[in-house]
Design a protein around this nucleic acid. Structure first.
Lengths: 336, 336
DNA sequence: CGCCTAAGGTTGTACGTATAACTTCGGTTT
DNA sequence: AAACCGAAGTTATACGTACAACCTTAGGCG
């Protein structure tokens, strides 16, 4: 067809099948039982197939007042962690006929941007991870159903929250290192104001406070391999007795610590034990392989999406944190 | 307001400002010059602000027949490479009032899925990376403007293509290793049918064929650190003279090669030189730091989006491949 | 025989927006 | 004084869909 620049509409299908547009809508919307005969329905389906008909989603969205699209706000896509969250969320979404639009949040691609400016798509709800308070109130202003990931249940303005049991993960790390005999620690903390990192710090302090003779130094670094190197290097070469174990807020910081250790001539795990959080592919690529807290990112995303679906259907979302698991590899050993 | 469950429409704004809905549309659409007085316009803007008015995008999309949303199809988000592509594309898109929806393609989240089933959003165009031929024809069937990334210019069914000059990158790698004195190579190739990897293989063979006394073995591995280890290990311990340099199709394969080398007791770069492609954060985290071809992912995404905008506006997209640059680090040295 | 009902449709309308086409009116030009 | 004009709006309509409400016909039943 020479002109065929415009896509066929349900009316075109109706004409081709010799029925009304309403009949087409009924048949393709699977609401035709007892309203349209089987033979007519088949004729409609065939016409739709022949014309390559695709419903106009903008029209459908307008008519139905919903879009079956949700927004997933993530801080970054620089590791596979949030990719996993997305994958899990998208899978559950697809099972329920929803789509997921990804928005790497302000810190990622520029300051103080409005997620909705970029997400041109009309939205039914939002899943937001580690979101700043002001951006959060902005979203709340939209009165959109909202689920917060890894965020303070007390400070989420009543939004549903889905959290990893990161406190338990840090507890496992602390117990592991304490039982190996470590007493002097460096906490290499993510230099980001986020609840999930506050929890790590609090839990670590609480666990170490239970054991006499422990001490912990804290250093902060931006979450990236390169960013961690300088911070770890200076913390490890500071005056006073050197820590025998470095507890890192995530695997990237741990990778930076490896590099700092190499520069200082420290051997892992002989001179220094190192732990991470995330269990990225990076963790097993490093030498020695990293002892780290495994987070199930996809499960996290699935739970987030399920919680949002619950909110959308006015059901109460399941509660309970998602369990995490310390994986002991070769980067931790008793102190010499 | 107790009921306020429905969002305000332009008609509500009109009523609040004491004007017609058309006037609201004109003012907020910035088309009011010479049609509405400055004082009235200000009154409308104020009413819109007070009510927290947000235009209904579904309605706008329906009316305008376009959505200012494009789909970015990527094979995976497991490294920061495609995250960078997305970031670049999203930035350019935002500058032009477009949004980008991400779709990790079939291989990533399940076989033979239809991108459009998941992307509920109505689309103006598609940027697709490394796409299978059948999925491509499916998209072409949609008659949507399409730009292909890293894909065979000859086999893209007339779609615009934007490519990294990966052949030049491989040429730089080959020249670097040859000039160091290497003659026996292992090509650790990505086990994925994709044009960009075919180019690597072809170019490598062509460059080595120019120099007498060279030989190259090829091993294939799935693109992941773990996937590469076994493949590299067996290729490096196969009978015959051991290669002195491993040319990997990407950095993840190189990381796997490091691991294989450790298992075989081979020291890098003394016993074995290794190169990658991508320049991920991983590359400088490894010990020794990896010599690799730096790809500018964000620039790639920007070019892709610009090309799509050109297609949408019936302009001819810029041509010319995006330059890449070999970064020489510590994983390559003369053979012993 | 008249009435009711179910099957198999059709007609009409609303969702919220953008914009083309029309109106009104005070002032200017001829 | 008639004709015109620009400013400042308004009215009406269409985009494509989903669905409520209506219509028509044939058959069953009291």
């Amino acid at each position: 067809m020479a002109r065929g620049s415009t896509r066929p509409t349900s009316r075109d299908v109706a004409q081709a099948a010799g029925v009304s547009q309403a009949a087409v809508s009924l048949v393709l919307g699977d609401k035709w039982r007892g309203r349209v005969s089987e033979t007519t329905a088949e004729r409609v389906r065939e016409a739709a197939r022949d014309l390559g008909y695709r419903p106009n989603l903008a029209a459908r969205n307008l008519r139905l007042g919903r879009t079956r699209t949700v927004l997933l706000v993530v801080p970054a896509l620089t590791t596979e962690f949030f990719a996993g969250v997305y994958t899990g969320a998208a899978r559950v979404a697809a099972e329920h006929g929803f789509g997921v639009v990804l928005y790497p949040s302000p810190e990622g691609i520029g300051p103080a941007r409005d997620p909705f400016a970029s997400a041109q798509a009309a939205l039914d709800g939002v899943i937001a991870s580690s979101m700043a308070a002001d951006a959060l109130t902005a979203i709340r202003g939209e009165a959109l159903p909202l689920v917060m990931l890894d965020s303070d249940p007390a400070g989420s303005l009543g939004a549903a929250t889905v959290n990893l049991d990161i406190a338990d993960g840090i507890r496992q790390v602390a117990e592991h290192l304490l039982s190996l005999g470590h007493r002097r620690f460096l906490h290499l903390a993510a230099d980001v104001p986020s609840w999930t990192f506050e929890v790590r710090a609090r839990e670590l302090e609480a666990r170490l406070a239970e054991v006499a003779g422990t001490s912990v130094r804290t250093a902060r670094a931006p979450i990236s391999i390169e960013g961690a190197v300088a911070s770890a290097e200076s913390a490890l070469s500071a005056p006073g007795a050197r820590p025998t174990a470095v507890i890192c807020d995530d695997d990237q910081l741990a990778a930076g610590t490896y590099k700092a250790a190499r520069r200082l001539g420290l051997r892992i795990p002989d001179d220094l034990s190192v732990t991470g959080v995330d269990d990225l592919a990076l963790a097993t690529a490093m030498d020695p392989e990293l002892t780290t807290v495994h987070l199930n990112a996809e499960l996290f995303g699935e739970h987030g999406m399920r919680a949002l679906l619950a909110v959308l259907e006015d059901r109460a979302p399941e509660s309970g944190d998602i369990p995490v698991q310390l994986i002991v590899r070769s980067s931790t050993a008793p102190p010499r």
